[in-house]
Amino acid sequence: MKQETRLSGLDELRGLAIGLVVLSHVGPVFGEGGTAAPLLFAPAWSVGVDLFFVISGLVVERSLQSLRHERGALEAASAFYIRRAMRIVPLAWCVGTILSIGLIMPGSGIEPEDAKAAFAFISNLHWARCFGGAAGCGNAFAFAPFWSVAAEVQFYLLAPLLVFLLPRPALVALAGLVLVVGAFTLRPWGGTLWTFRIDAIAVGLAIGAIMGTSSWPRLAEHLRAIGNMEAAFWMSVAAFMLAILPPATHGVATAMLALMCGWIVARATLRAGSVTWPGRMLHRLGGISYALYLIHLPVLALYNCSLGQFLGAPATATLSIATAIGMSHVLTAVMGDPLHQLGRQWSNRTVREVSP
């Protein structure tokens, strides 16, 4: 079993995913009424989140199987929770604390409920009605991105039960059931149920389960490794298709999107990291993708509010994205990576202490 083998191709897919997510927010912040509005608003660039979800499902399944192979189920689950908590929670709470300054700033539009939901990792429940068009919601340019972080954390809580209690064929069957139910569920893109699309996570779990079987090498022979340009092309096609399809078809479209992202991720596992500069750039973006996801939208909104009328939208957008990337590098280097390593050390120490 080679569960610990790092899949270098996924690092660059994370970079592509966060690039799409950032692009999905450039439109609402800067594009309204401008010449770039049709390009920035029309496609559903937030399909990058679905790509993240598939990667997460795959990585979590492999991580849990690897931990289970090394130690007992309880110790494996404990180690998994410690590692994920140290990777996700402190950075989210740090950014949430900074954003909470808006609670005392007149006109910020940030509501106490926004912050509470973010800190409790239930933002998907909190923002669902807002994305569905409900009135009286807080400032979406601050805490709204925490909805997907909440979905990830909730998945982490259930993941050990799913992976340890269900055999691999059952995980694949569960993914199929989720896709079928999702396809027949009315869930227009950006609507209330938009924050509860678990299709992509289920597909990622299924891919991880299949990769752990003896049939994977034979299946892999029929797949061709995917490059970053081809992955970007297919994700762009998905973004434009979701934008033009009628809302009544978005259940099927979201399920198909999850399958397409799974197809891309499965092919990305077959290749090593790129040696070209675009690939290296995506790799770097992938390494800071979590911090960048948390902070990019409030940074974009703050720059647009303070500098947009002086510099114009293109210059302000470029400057704000560069700032967000720089801040993400700092947050990842100072907090994200050290805490991730600390979590691994703590989990390993806990296992050694309980071992006979």
Rank of each mutant, 00 (worst) to 15 (best):
Met1Trp: 06
Thr5Lys: 08
Ser24Asn: 06
His25Gln: 13
Pro28Asp: 04
Gly31Lys: 08
Gly33Leu: 11
Leu40Pro: 13
Asp50Ala: 04
Phe52Trp: 12
Ser56Arg: 02
Gly57His: 05
Gly57Ser: 09
Arg62Val: 03
Leu67Phe: 00
Leu67Tyr: 01
Leu67Arg: 02
His69Ala: 15
Leu74Arg: 02
Leu74Cys: 05
Ala77Val: 02
Tyr81Cys: 07
Tyr81Trp: 12
Ile82Phe: 00
Met86Tyr: 06
Ile104Leu: 08
Met105Leu: 15
Ser108His: 06
Glu111Cys: 11
Ala117Val: 12
Phe119Asp: 11
Ala120Gly: 10
Asn124Leu: 05
His126Gly: 13
Ala134Trp: 13
Ala135Leu: 14
Ala144Val: 07
Ser148Trp: 11
Ala151Tyr: 10
Val153Trp: 15
Leu161Tyr: 13
Pro167Leu: 13
Pro169Glu: 09
Leu174Ala: 13
Leu177His: 04
Val178Cys: 05
Leu179Pro: 13
Val181Ile: 15
Leu186Met: 02
Pro188Ser: 07
Gly204Asp: 11
Ala206Asp: 10
Ile207Cys: 07
Met211Pro: 01
Gly212His: 11
Trp216Gly: 00
Arg218Val: 11
Ala220Tyr: 05
Ala231Glu: 04
Phe240Asn: 05
Phe240His: 06
Met241Ala: 12
Pro246Ile: 00
Thr249Phe: 06
Leu259Glu: 06
Val265Cys: 07
Trp277Ile: 15
Gly279Lys: 04
Gly286Asp: 02
His296Val: 09
Pro298Asp: 07
Leu302Tyr: 05
Phe310Ala: 14
Leu311Ile: 06
Gly312His: 13
Gly312Gln: 11
Ala315Trp: 14
Ala315Val: 15
Ala315Ile: 14
Leu319Cys: 10
Ala324Lys: 14
Ala324Thr: 14
Gly326Trp: 11
Val330Trp: 12
Leu331Phe: 09
Met335Phe: 09
Pro338Cys: 04
Gly343Ser: 00
Gly343Tyr: 01
Thr350Asn: 06
Glu353Leu: 12
Pro356Phe: 00
